[in-house]
């Protein structure tokens, strides 16, 4: 899962990025409204965590512009404004959830999980695909009840493929989703990641769970 955290407070922005990365998310950060809008337009995020009181461009204006441009990325508003009017205004502007500062980090994680489930059309945090089980909440993977250790990038790739299981995911989408601003992607990073993931999850004597669609991308096979 890839998140965009838009927050002008340096301490909060860095803490959120650190915590969310620690929870297994790929995180991009932005400190003002104009930069946030540019990033939202340029990249595919699973959720945007958006503060309202931003320099250069107010958070509600960023949200309205995103929706006007047809960007349907779920948005969680994170703000100190706790009035009912503020909440209604935020939700009516196109926000998918609203969290008032100060908040418990666990609650933020729970809300992000709920938002990603809702946006991917799934009801539970646990997905089962042909003996493979992936827990979206605690970011763990098992195959036939045997835990599989994956680094963050490979986990992100598997999560993406599982959420889109049965459909082809383009290389561009994979690149956008599994790399954050801290990584310089190059032409073979996707292939390398797929290769590493195949070694981790494929059965030793059978076809790969990840099917290559030449010129299109990759697809996780359903049983």
């Amino acid at each position: 899962m890839k998140l965009l955290v838009v927050e002008d407070s340096r301490i909060l922005r860095e803490s959120l990025a650190l915590g969310l990365r620690g929870a297994g998310y790929l995180v991009d950060v932005s400190a003002d409204g104009e930069d946030a809008l540019w990033r939202a337009e340029a990249a595919i995020y699973d959720v945007v965590v958006l503060d309202l009181g931003l320099p250069k461009r107010d958070g509600l204006s960023v949200l309205a512009e995103m929706r006007a441009q047809g960007i349907a990325t779920p948005v969680l508003i994170l703000t100190a404004r706790d009035g009912v009017d503020d909440r209604v205004k935020g939700l009516r502007s196109g926000a998918d959830d609203y969290l008032v500062k100060p908040f418990a980090f666990d609650e933020l994680l729970a809300r992000l999980e709920a938002l990603t489930r809702r946006s991917n059309g799934i009801a539970k945090n646990v997905l089962h695909i042909d003996g493979l089980m992936i827990n979206l909440a605690d970011k763990t993977v098992t195959i036939n009840d045997v835990p599989v250790a994956l680094v963050r990038r490979e986990y992100a790739l598997l999560e993406l493929l599982c959420l889109k299981a049965g459909t082809v995911v383009s290389r561009a989408d994979i690149e956008a989703k599994i790399y954050d601003e801290h990584v310089e992607p190059n032409s073979n990073v996707v292939d390398a990641a797929v290769s590493i993931l195949r070694k981790a999850i494929d059965p030793p004597d059978g076809p790969s769970r990840i099917e290559t669609k030449r010129g299109q991308g990759y697809r996780l096979r359903r049983a």
Binding site: L12, A80, V100, F103, D106
Partner: peptide
């Protein structure tokens, strides 16, 4: 709220990770 949120998130994350 803002500095309290900063303080809470800072310490929450430090404790969790």
């Amino acid at each position: 709220r803002t500095p309290i949120a900063e303080l809470r998130t800072l310490t929450d994350v430090a404790l969790r990770f």
